[in-house]
């Protein structure tokens, strides 16, 4: 024992001074500094709250907008051929097409910058600007998802409905939309997840959300690794939870198919 002690001490000091081990040992204080010190975790929670709020409000906004656009686009496409086209519907359809093309054809980041510095330069609350940018962006994608879902329903279904004397609205409401819903739901889940992750871009325009607090704390403690890794884990955990909920919902819907 006493003979080995110096050897052990030597080994221990060598190991202790190895860079990776040093690094590992430093993690404790570093994360402590980034999360615990000065109750900083409250800031993350505050940021997470803002992020979730932005996601939910922007999604609601996007769904309503997307629904309107999808209704205009499908109503326009389903006009009976041979008859005079509805002029107003034609104009609306053109507007909707421009909207989806522009939004889906430009980067989310660029859109946010335009919202902040060109369209709404006087709005101080950057979270609100973020909601506008994200919601309007999401609307374009939701519109295409819903339109695709409606088109995926066999045309024979609406023909059968109409042949029974049901009007267009009843046919959509009772026959087409319930069937489209099943096809729409998975893509809507994906859209929700994408939107949730895209909220981190709002940091760049000064919106006080999760990534914003992470970079602030990183700047104050001169250590960016713990806050950024920390929020990455937070995003990941929430996305995994959402994915799980989504697959569970899909499985339940599929079960009803095999009734």
């Amino acid at each position: 024992m006493s003979v080995l002690q110096p050897l052990l001490d030597w080994l221990y000091s060598r190991l202790y001074n190895l860079p990776p081990v040093q690094w590992l040992i430093s993690l404790g204080p570093r994360f402590h500094l980034a999360f615990i010190e000065g109750d900083r975790w409250k800031l993350y929670l505050q940021g997470l709250g803002a992020t979730l709020e932005m996601t939910v409000v922007a999604l609601c906004f996007g769904v309503i907008l997307g629904l309107l656009v999808a209704v205009v686009r499908t109503a326009h496409d389903q006009q009976r051929p041979g008859r005079r086209k509805n002029f107003l519907l034609g104009v609306l359809n053109a507007l909707c097409q421009i909207y989806t093309t522009v939004i889906r054809g430009t980067p989310m980041m660029v859109q946010l910058l335009i919202w902040t510095f060109v369209i709404l330069p006087t709005v101080r609350n950057k979270i609100l600007v973020g909601i506008a940018g994200l919601g309007i962006n999401s609307g374009a994608y939701v519109a295409e998802i819903i339109r695709g879902g409606l088109m995926s329903v066999d045309v024979g279904q609406s023909e059968a409905g109409r042949s029974l004397g049901l009007n267009y609205i009843d046919t959509m409401r009772f026959i087409v939309i319930p069937q489209a819903f099943k096809n729409i739901l998975p893509s809507m889940g994906n859209e929700f997840i994408t939107l949730f992750k895209d909220t981190s871009l709002v940091q760049a325009i000064g919106g006080a959300e999760l990534a914003y607090y992470a970079s602030t704390i990183g700047g104050r403690t001169f250590d960016y690794m713990p806050p950024y890794i920390g929020i990455a884990v937070m995003y990941l955990v929430i996305v995994i939870a959402l994915t799980w909920a989504q697959s569970k919902l899909e499985r339940r819907l599929r079960q009803s198919d095999r009734r």
Binding site: Q157, S163, L164, G165, N167, I175
Partner: peptide, 21 residues
Amino acid sequence: IDKVRQQMGMVFQHFNLFPNM
């Protein structure tokens, strides 16, 4: 046309029953 179609029944090759009901 909806009023007219209410008086004309139609049966399709592929049945077109509504699977959600």
